[in-house]
């Protein structure tokens, strides 16, 4: 692995930023980005699980036989997801109420399995941590950006920690389509399009 740690970290922020570049883990991306807050919460939960599972997969990579590696990854990921779910119920119940079913569904989020299979299983612990952090933060940024666009156009303001911040003037009529599921598809598609245009240069 000739790449430096900085490269492992930054590739998750632009070059392979999930979900746009990898186009994995779209289910929570589409369902949970009604607001910026949800995006940040989901991103933070996923980052934690991703870093922890990357570390453990990387540590155990010599011990896990190749034939059962996927099963082992799933056990590791599911364990951390359950920890996050319990912790969220204990410490941040309102956020848990908003994210709801999508927390347990992190288990089947392809980004996690993808990173375990494509990276952590083949690399050492330190690069795996950086890879996990980069991917997690990239995912958080993407979800927050998507959430911000949908929330601003869908409701006219952004709510952070229960405080609404008005972005649009009072005359703005909320574009309710944006906070519905189809709005997420259109918004994601447009963002992907813009990113591809920028990337072409």
């Amino acid at each position: 692995m000739a790449k430096s740690l900085v490269q492992e970290f930054t590739k998750g922020l632009w070059k392979e930023i999930p979900p746009f570049r990898l186009v994995l883990g779209l289910c929570p991306t589409l369902a949970l980005t009604k607001t910026v807050e949800n995006g940040i919460g989901m991103g933070a939960a996923l980052t934690f699980v991703l870093v922890c599972s990357n570390i453990l997969v990387s540590v155990c990579r010599k011990l896990i036989p190749g034939k059962v590696r996927i099963a082992a990854f799933i056990i590791i990921i599911a364990t951390f997801v359950t920890i996050v779910e319990l912790a969220m119920q204990k410490f941040a119940y309102p956020l848990f109420l908003k994210l709801g079913i999508f927390i347990p569904l992190i288990v089947v989020n392809c980004i996690l399995l993808g990173r375990a299979e494509a990276f952590a299983y083949k690399n050492g612990v330190i690069p795996s941590i950086f890879d996990g952090l980069g991917m997690g933060i990239g995912f958080t940024l993407s979800l927050s950006a998507l959430g911000a666009i949908r929330e601003i156009f869908g409701t006219g303001f952004i709510t952070i920690w229960e405080k609404p911040i008005h972005v649009m003037s009072d005359a703005f009529v909320p574009f309710a389509f944006m906070v519905e599921a189809p709005g997420a598809f259109v918004c994601l598609g447009l963002m992907l399009c813009v990113m591809n245009l920028l990337g072409k240069k």
Binding site: L63, I64, P65, K67, V68, A71, A72, I75, I76, A78, T79
Partner: peptide, 12 residues
């Protein structure tokens, strides 16, 4: 394989 998966499951 059996041992590794068993240990992992038990710990988890």
């Amino acid at each position: 394989m059996v041992v590794v998966l068993t240990i992992l499951s038990v710990l988890s």
